[in-house]
Amino acid sequence: MEKRKFLVVVDPSHERHLALERMLDIVTQRRESIANFHLLVGFEGADKADPNAPSEVIRGKQWFDELMAPVDATGVDYTVEFFWTANWRKSITDAAERFECDTIMLCESSAEHKRGITDSKWDLVRQARCDVVIVDEGTEAPIKTILAAVNTQAKDAGHQALNDRILERGKFLAEYFNADYHVVNAYTDSENFPDRQKISRMSGLPREKIYRDMGKPEDVIAATAERIGADMVIIGISPRTGLSAKFASHTTEKVMEKITVDVVALN
């Protein structure tokens, strides 16, 4: 199996660093499949002298040594970069491309947004060229169950390609973590009913691991994730543009807000 390269984002103003904790979980669970990871420690702010910047962002060597001690104990290779930036999203995507990372990992919440993704993180999810994992405290290692959410009723080529990517990534991650794999497809009315046999052909899964429920996507996906005890949910970011893209983005954001486990976002 291919080895993965991760970019792990740590905000020093946080007390708990969920993305780094999850990276440690992955190292423990899948050590042989990790090439290395790059740790990006930084804060979004226009000016280091800004009096409104939280004092917690000023950290010393002892803080960093304590932060990395559990990782050092595993013997995994990693590199570190410190930054203070006015363009948080660009700094992260540039680092991901510079280090040729397959996956960006960051935590879901912040001091200002206990639930819900911040604007800068949402911008990152929309613009990243690799997988973005939004880590949440509802997931506990090891990762045992993965749920992929698709929209097979969509007929345009962009959505069909996105469905293929979601299902491919779900299969890969299920094999990567030796996890149980399920697929969910929400629909809003009986005239738009998903074809379970089609989803089975696309995913390679038996019918009993495919879920079709009527309702808003965010409600159906969250309910299914809870029902099967999902540790990770894979969702796609709409390829549409303009007003329809804004509406779809709002729907995707609602999904991410309702789910309390790790979310893998794909463009």
Rank of each mutant, 00 (worst) to 15 (best):
K5F: 02
F6E: 08
L7S: 11
V9I: 04
V9R: 14
S13R: 15
E15T: 04
R16Q: 07
R16N: 07
L18I: 01
M23E: 12
L24K: 05
I26A: 06
V27H: 02
V27R: 06
Q29M: 15
R31Q: 11
I34K: 05
N36G: 07
E44T: 02
A46L: 11
S55P: 06
E56N: 04
V57N: 06
G60R: 02
G60N: 05
Q62I: 03
F64R: 12
P70K: 14
P70F: 11
Y78C: 01
T85I: 10
E100M: 09
S109T: 05
S110A: 10
K114L: 12
T118A: 02
D119F: 08
W122G: 09
L124P: 04
A128C: 10
C130D: 13
E137C: 04
A141V: 13
A141L: 12
L162N: 03
D164L: 08
E175T: 15
Y181D: 13
P194A: 01
P194W: 10
D195H: 06
R196E: 05
Q197V: 01
K198R: 12
M202A: 08
L205C: 11
G215W: 05
K216H: 00
A222E: 04
A223M: 05
T224N: 06
E226W: 00
G229H: 02
A230G: 05
I237P: 06
R240E: 14
R240V: 00
T241K: 06
T241R: 11
S244A: 09
A245Y: 01
T251A: 05
T251P: 03
E253N: 00
M256F: 04
M256A: 01
N267D: 11
